[in-house]
Simulated scan of single mutants.
Amino acid sequence: MPRPLSSILGQKGSCLSQPFELVVPLLLLHCHSHTTTMSSSESLAVGVYKRDDTTVSRSPCPVVNALANHGYINRDGRKIYVRELNASMRRVGMSPLLGSVFAVPTYFEYHNPDTANKKDPVPTWQRVLSLIKNPYSYFDYFGCWNPEKMDDKGKKYVDLVDLASHGAIEHDVSMSRRDIGQKQGNNDPQPDLIEDLLKHSTDGEYLTIEEFGVFIKDRLKQQLEDNPDLVYGAHQHQLNCGNITLMMGCFGDGKKIPVKYVKAIFEDERLPIEEGWKRRFWWPMGLIEFFGSVRKVAKATAMEF
Protein backbone atom coordinates (compact mmCIF):
# COMPACT_ATOMS: atom_id res chain seq x y z
CA MET A 1 0.00 0.00 0.00
CA PRO A 2 1.22 3.57 -0.64
CA ARG A 3 3.01 5.04 2.33
CA PRO A 4 2.02 8.50 3.58
CA LEU A 5 4.57 11.21 2.94
CA SER A 6 4.80 11.74 6.68
CA SER A 7 6.70 8.46 6.87
CA ILE A 8 9.21 9.89 4.42
CA LEU A 9 9.52 13.29 6.05
CA GLY A 10 9.75 12.19 9.67
CA GLN A 11 8.15 13.89 12.65
CA LYS A 12 7.59 17.59 13.05
CA GLY A 13 10.77 19.44 13.92
CA SER A 14 13.05 16.57 12.94
CA CYS A 15 15.26 15.95 9.95
CA LEU A 16 14.23 13.60 7.17
CA SER A 17 13.42 10.14 8.48
CA GLN A 18 16.27 7.66 8.65
CA PRO A 19 15.13 5.37 5.79
CA PHE A 20 14.98 8.35 3.46
CA GLU A 21 18.41 9.55 4.61
CA LEU A 22 19.78 6.16 3.61
CA VAL A 23 18.09 6.29 0.22
CA VAL A 24 19.41 9.75 -0.78
CA PRO A 25 23.09 8.73 -1.20
CA LEU A 26 22.01 5.76 -3.30
CA LEU A 27 19.87 8.05 -5.45
CA LEU A 28 22.84 10.35 -6.00
CA LEU A 29 24.82 7.42 -7.38
CA HIS A 30 22.04 6.43 -9.74
CA CYS A 31 20.58 9.73 -10.97
CA HIS A 32 23.35 10.48 -13.49
CA SER A 33 22.63 7.24 -15.34
CA HIS A 34 19.17 8.55 -16.21
CA THR A 35 20.16 11.82 -17.91
CA THR A 36 20.24 12.58 -21.60
CA THR A 37 19.65 15.34 -24.12
CA MET A 38 16.18 16.64 -24.90
CA SER A 39 13.94 15.08 -27.51
CA SER A 40 13.72 16.66 -30.94
CA SER A 41 10.92 17.19 -33.42
CA GLU A 42 11.16 17.04 -37.18
CA SER A 43 8.47 19.68 -37.71
CA LEU A 44 8.94 22.11 -34.81
CA ALA A 45 12.00 23.23 -32.90
CA VAL A 46 12.27 22.05 -29.32
CA GLY A 47 10.77 24.69 -27.04
CA VAL A 48 8.19 25.97 -29.52
CA TYR A 49 4.67 25.62 -28.13
CA LYS A 50 1.95 23.84 -30.07
CA ARG A 51 -1.09 22.18 -28.58
CA ASP A 52 -3.04 19.35 -30.19
CA ASP A 53 -5.68 17.65 -28.06
CA THR A 54 -7.19 15.53 -30.83
CA THR A 55 -4.63 12.88 -31.77
CA VAL A 56 -2.09 12.95 -28.95
CA SER A 57 -1.70 11.11 -25.65
CA ARG A 58 -1.87 13.31 -22.59
CA SER A 59 -1.71 12.91 -18.81
CA PRO A 60 -3.64 14.35 -15.85
CA CYS A 61 -0.64 16.62 -15.11
CA PRO A 62 -0.73 19.97 -16.94
CA VAL A 63 3.01 20.55 -16.44
CA VAL A 64 3.95 17.21 -18.05
CA ASN A 65 1.53 17.98 -20.87
CA ALA A 66 3.18 21.39 -21.27
CA LEU A 67 6.56 19.69 -21.65
CA ALA A 68 5.10 17.66 -24.52
CA ASN A 69 3.44 20.72 -26.06
CA HIS A 70 6.85 22.42 -26.08
CA GLY A 71 8.59 19.37 -27.54
CA TYR A 72 10.79 18.59 -24.54
CA ILE A 73 9.36 15.07 -24.70
CA ASN A 74 7.65 13.47 -27.70
CA ARG A 75 4.95 15.87 -28.84
CA ASP A 76 2.47 13.07 -29.45
CA GLY A 77 2.93 11.90 -25.85
CA ARG A 78 3.68 8.35 -26.90
CA LYS A 79 6.64 6.07 -26.36
CA ILE A 80 8.29 8.23 -23.71
CA TYR A 81 11.47 6.69 -22.32
CA VAL A 82 12.73 7.32 -18.81
CA ARG A 83 15.77 9.29 -19.98
CA GLU A 84 13.59 11.73 -21.90
CA LEU A 85 11.06 12.24 -19.12
CA ASN A 86 13.81 12.63 -16.54
CA ALA A 87 15.75 15.17 -18.60
CA SER A 88 12.60 17.21 -19.25
CA MET A 89 12.12 17.82 -15.52
CA ARG A 90 15.05 20.25 -15.59
CA ARG A 91 13.10 22.40 -18.04
CA VAL A 92 10.82 23.48 -15.20
CA GLY A 93 13.66 24.13 -12.75
CA MET A 94 14.11 20.83 -10.91
CA SER A 95 17.54 19.52 -10.01
CA PRO A 96 18.64 16.29 -11.73
CA LEU A 97 18.11 14.37 -8.48
CA LEU A 98 14.63 15.74 -7.76
CA GLY A 99 13.62 15.28 -11.38
CA SER A 100 14.75 11.67 -11.29
CA VAL A 101 12.64 11.03 -8.17
CA PHE A 102 9.57 12.12 -10.13
CA ALA A 103 10.46 10.49 -13.45
CA VAL A 104 12.18 7.17 -12.71
CA PRO A 105 9.57 5.60 -10.37
CA THR A 106 6.95 6.11 -13.08
CA TYR A 107 8.53 3.16 -14.90
CA PHE A 108 7.84 0.66 -12.14
CA GLU A 109 4.93 -1.63 -12.92
CA TYR A 110 1.51 -0.27 -12.06
CA HIS A 111 -0.37 -2.12 -9.34
CA ASN A 112 -3.97 -1.26 -8.63
CA PRO A 113 -4.09 0.02 -5.02
CA ASP A 114 -7.57 -1.49 -4.62
CA THR A 115 -6.05 -4.97 -4.81
CA ALA A 116 -2.64 -4.27 -3.24
CA ASN A 117 -3.81 -5.33 0.22
CA LYS A 118 -4.59 -8.80 -1.13
CA LYS A 119 -0.92 -9.49 -1.83
CA ASP A 120 1.53 -10.94 0.66
CA PRO A 121 3.76 -8.29 2.28
CA VAL A 122 7.32 -8.05 0.98
CA PRO A 123 9.88 -9.33 3.53
CA THR A 124 12.14 -6.65 5.00
CA TRP A 125 15.33 -8.26 3.72
CA GLN A 126 13.93 -8.34 0.20
CA ARG A 127 12.91 -4.69 0.44
CA VAL A 128 16.40 -3.68 1.63
CA LEU A 129 18.01 -5.67 -1.17
CA SER A 130 15.76 -3.95 -3.71
CA LEU A 131 16.76 -0.54 -2.35
CA ILE A 132 20.45 -1.37 -2.67
CA LYS A 133 20.00 -2.58 -6.23
CA ASN A 134 17.68 0.28 -7.20
CA PRO A 135 17.07 3.07 -4.65
CA TYR A 136 14.20 4.41 -6.74
CA SER A 137 12.21 1.35 -5.66
CA TYR A 138 11.57 3.33 -2.46
CA PHE A 139 8.98 5.18 -4.55
CA ASP A 140 7.71 2.21 -6.55
CA TYR A 141 4.10 2.90 -5.55
CA PHE A 142 4.20 5.71 -8.16
CA GLY A 143 4.65 3.11 -10.90
CA CYS A 144 2.47 3.61 -14.00
CA TRP A 145 4.19 1.26 -16.43
CA ASN A 146 2.26 -1.42 -18.32
CA PRO A 147 4.35 -4.59 -18.93
CA GLU A 148 3.16 -4.66 -22.54
CA LYS A 149 5.02 -1.42 -23.23
CA MET A 150 8.49 -2.65 -24.06
CA ASP A 151 10.29 -1.91 -27.33
CA ASP A 152 12.15 -4.47 -29.45
CA LYS A 153 15.36 -3.68 -27.56
CA GLY A 154 13.76 -4.50 -24.22
CA LYS A 155 13.47 -0.89 -23.05
CA LYS A 156 10.44 0.29 -21.12
CA TYR A 157 8.37 3.23 -22.27
CA VAL A 158 5.11 4.88 -21.27
CA ASP A 159 2.45 6.88 -23.04
CA LEU A 160 1.39 9.97 -21.15
CA VAL A 161 -2.10 8.57 -20.67
CA ASP A 162 -0.51 5.88 -18.48
CA LEU A 163 0.05 8.57 -15.85
CA ALA A 164 -3.71 8.51 -15.35
CA SER A 165 -3.42 5.04 -13.78
CA HIS A 166 -5.59 5.54 -10.73
CA GLY A 167 -3.94 5.50 -7.33
CA ALA A 168 -0.34 5.84 -8.50
CA ILE A 169 0.32 9.49 -9.31
CA GLU A 170 -3.29 10.34 -10.15
CA HIS A 171 -5.82 10.58 -7.32
CA ASP A 172 -9.34 11.76 -6.54
CA VAL A 173 -9.97 15.47 -5.86
CA SER A 174 -7.19 16.77 -8.08
CA MET A 175 -7.07 20.46 -8.90
CA SER A 176 -8.07 20.35 -12.57
CA ARG A 177 -9.51 16.87 -13.23
CA ARG A 178 -12.55 15.06 -11.95
CA ASP A 179 -12.48 11.64 -10.33
CA ILE A 180 -12.14 8.30 -12.04
CA GLY A 181 -15.63 7.41 -10.82
CA GLN A 182 -17.25 10.29 -12.72
CA LYS A 183 -18.39 10.33 -16.33
CA GLN A 184 -15.84 13.02 -17.26
CA GLY A 185 -13.04 10.67 -16.24
CA ASN A 186 -9.81 11.49 -14.44
CA ASN A 187 -7.62 12.59 -17.35
CA ASP A 188 -9.24 15.47 -19.24
CA PRO A 189 -8.89 19.07 -18.00
CA GLN A 190 -12.12 20.56 -16.69
CA PRO A 191 -12.49 24.27 -17.60
CA ASP A 192 -14.90 24.99 -14.75
CA LEU A 193 -12.46 23.63 -12.15
CA ILE A 194 -9.61 25.69 -13.58
CA GLU A 195 -11.79 28.80 -13.61
CA ASP A 196 -12.76 28.16 -10.00
CA LEU A 197 -9.09 27.77 -9.03
CA LEU A 198 -8.21 31.12 -10.58
CA LYS A 199 -11.13 32.78 -8.79
CA HIS A 200 -9.68 31.73 -5.43
CA SER A 201 -7.09 34.49 -5.78
CA THR A 202 -8.25 37.31 -3.51
CA ASP A 203 -6.32 40.04 -5.32
CA GLY A 204 -6.55 38.64 -8.85
CA GLU A 205 -2.78 38.83 -9.22
CA TYR A 206 -1.38 35.97 -7.17
CA LEU A 207 -2.44 32.66 -5.68
CA THR A 208 -0.97 31.89 -2.27
CA ILE A 209 -0.42 28.55 -0.57
CA GLU A 210 -3.34 29.29 1.74
CA GLU A 211 -5.63 30.08 -1.21
CA PHE A 212 -4.69 26.80 -2.86
CA GLY A 213 -5.59 25.14 0.44
CA VAL A 214 -9.02 26.80 0.52
CA PHE A 215 -9.59 25.70 -3.07
CA ILE A 216 -8.79 22.07 -2.27
CA LYS A 217 -11.11 22.12 0.74
CA ASP A 218 -13.88 23.58 -1.41
CA ARG A 219 -13.17 20.95 -4.07
CA LEU A 220 -13.43 18.16 -1.52
CA LYS A 221 -16.73 19.49 -0.19
CA GLN A 222 -18.21 19.63 -3.69
CA GLN A 223 -16.77 16.27 -4.71
CA LEU A 224 -18.31 14.55 -1.71
CA GLU A 225 -21.67 15.58 -3.15
CA ASP A 226 -20.81 14.71 -6.76
CA ASN A 227 -18.90 11.49 -6.06
CA PRO A 228 -19.66 10.03 -2.61
CA ASP A 229 -17.40 7.04 -3.34
CA LEU A 230 -14.25 9.14 -3.72
CA VAL A 231 -11.07 8.30 -1.83
CA TYR A 232 -9.30 11.26 -0.26
CA GLY A 233 -7.22 10.86 2.85
CA ALA A 234 -3.83 11.90 4.19
CA HIS A 235 -1.94 10.26 1.31
CA GLN A 236 -3.98 11.97 -1.42
CA HIS A 237 -3.78 15.31 0.38
CA GLN A 238 0.00 15.03 0.62
CA LEU A 239 0.14 14.44 -3.13
CA ASN A 240 -1.86 17.63 -3.63
CA CYS A 241 0.55 19.40 -1.28
CA GLY A 242 3.40 18.11 -3.43
CA ASN A 243 1.73 19.58 -6.51
CA ILE A 244 1.32 22.94 -4.78
CA THR A 245 4.95 22.83 -3.65
CA LEU A 246 6.19 22.30 -7.20
CA MET A 247 4.00 25.12 -8.47
CA MET A 248 5.29 27.48 -5.79
CA GLY A 249 8.92 26.41 -6.02
CA CYS A 250 9.33 26.09 -9.78
CA PHE A 251 6.98 28.84 -10.96
CA GLY A 252 6.51 31.09 -7.92
CA ASP A 253 8.58 32.50 -5.09
CA GLY A 254 7.81 29.69 -2.65
CA LYS A 255 4.82 31.47 -1.10
CA LYS A 256 2.77 32.68 -4.04
CA ILE A 257 2.53 32.30 -7.80
CA PRO A 258 1.22 34.80 -10.38
CA VAL A 259 -2.30 34.00 -11.54
CA LYS A 260 -1.21 34.52 -15.15
CA TYR A 261 1.32 31.69 -14.72
CA VAL A 262 -1.34 29.36 -13.31
CA LYS A 263 -3.66 30.29 -16.16
CA ALA A 264 -1.02 29.46 -18.79
CA ILE A 265 -0.13 26.14 -17.15
CA PHE A 266 -3.65 24.89 -16.45
CA GLU A 267 -5.67 26.42 -19.31
CA ASP A 268 -3.14 26.28 -22.15
CA GLU A 269 -0.87 23.55 -20.75
CA ARG A 270 1.97 25.86 -21.64
CA LEU A 271 5.07 27.02 -19.79
CA PRO A 272 4.42 30.69 -18.88
CA ILE A 273 7.43 32.04 -20.77
CA GLU A 274 5.38 34.73 -22.53
CA GLU A 275 4.19 35.95 -19.13
CA GLY A 276 7.76 36.48 -17.93
CA TRP A 277 8.61 33.21 -16.19
CA LYS A 278 12.21 32.02 -16.25
CA ARG A 279 13.18 28.61 -14.98
CA ARG A 280 15.51 28.22 -12.06
CA PHE A 281 18.86 27.52 -13.68
CA TRP A 282 21.74 28.21 -11.31
CA TRP A 283 19.87 27.06 -8.21
CA PRO A 284 17.17 24.55 -9.24
CA MET A 285 14.70 23.07 -6.80
CA GLY A 286 16.36 20.19 -5.00
CA LEU A 287 15.23 17.20 -3.01
CA ILE A 288 15.69 18.66 0.47
CA GLU A 289 14.00 21.93 -0.48
CA PHE A 290 11.07 20.06 -1.98
CA PHE A 291 10.34 17.79 0.98
CA GLY A 292 10.88 20.63 3.45
CA SER A 293 8.43 22.79 1.51
CA VAL A 294 5.87 19.98 1.32
CA ARG A 295 5.90 19.87 5.11
CA LYS A 296 5.20 23.62 5.27
CA VAL A 297 2.44 23.42 2.66
CA ALA A 298 0.82 20.50 4.50
CA LYS A 299 0.80 22.59 7.68
CA ALA A 300 -0.64 25.64 5.89
CA THR A 301 -3.39 23.57 4.25
CA ALA A 302 -4.04 21.26 7.20
CA MET A 303 -7.03 18.94 6.97
CA GLU A 304 -8.32 16.35 9.42
CA PHE A 305 -8.97 12.82 8.19
Rank of each mutant, 00 (worst) to 15 (best):
His32Trp: 08
Ser95Ile: 02
Thr36Gly: 08
Ser95Lys: 02
Met94Pro: 00
Asn74Phe: 09
Ser41Gly: 15
Ile73Leu: 06
Cys61Ala: 13
Glu84Asn: 01
Leu28Arg: 14
Val64Arg: 05
Ser59Glu: 15
Ser88Pro: 02
Val63Asp: 01
Asp52Gln: 15
Ser95Cys: 00
His32Ser: 13
Arg75Lys: 09
Asp52Arg: 10
Arg51Met: 14
Val92Gly: 01
Leu85Gln: 04
Leu29Pro: 00
Ala87Trp: 01
Cys31Ser: 05
Asp52Lys: 12
Ser41His: 09
Ser88Trp: 01
Cys31Leu: 05
Leu44Asp: 14
Ser33Arg: 13
Asn86Pro: 03
Asp53Ser: 14
Arg83His: 04
Ser40Gln: 12
Ser59Met: 14
Arg78Thr: 11
Val63Leu: 08
Arg51Gly: 11
Val82Glu: 05
Thr55Glu: 15
Glu42Pro: 12
His34Gln: 10
Val56Arg: 13
Val48Ser: 10
Ser41Tyr: 06
Arg75Ser: 11
Leu27Pro: 00
Met38Tyr: 11
Ser88Leu: 00
Thr35Gly: 04
Ala45Ile: 07
Met38Arg: 05
Ala87Met: 04
Met38Ser: 07
Ser39Asn: 10
Asp53Gln: 14
Arg78Gly: 07
Tyr81Val: 08
Ser95Trp: 02
Arg58Lys: 14
Val46Thr: 15
Leu29Asp: 09
Ala68Ser: 15
Ser88Cys: 04
